[in-house]
């Protein structure tokens, strides 16, 4: 009975370990994709602002509208 309980505990631990490893790998992959997106040619072409608060401050200072472009890096 004790052996069975230890085995069950071990199996749970393994599942948790696999989950956390795959989560870490997943977020590493997401980070890689994000950096790839930021390195794209269109991002380098003009001076994009990447924080809305900063964009608002510049908009106020220069009396210019903000053109917000929403895109994603996690999928093509």
């Amino acid at each position: 009975m004790q052996k069975f309980s230890a085995l069950r505990w071990l199996a749970t631990l393994c599942v948790l370990l696999v989950c956390s490893v795959s989560l870490a790998q997943g977020s590493e992959e997401m980070e890689k994709r994000y950096q790839e997106k930021r390195a794209k040619k269109f991002v380098q072409k003009i001076e994009w602002v990447t924080s809305l608060d900063q964009a608002k401050a510049i908009s106020k200072q220069k009396n210019l509208p903000i053109l917000a472009y929403f895109t994603r890096s996690y999928a093509p």
Partner: peptide, 10 residues
């Protein structure tokens, strides 16, 4: 305009 880039990255 002020170009603002928002990248959804999850």
């Amino acid at each position: 305009f002020v170009p603002y880039l928002n990248i959804s990255a999850q």
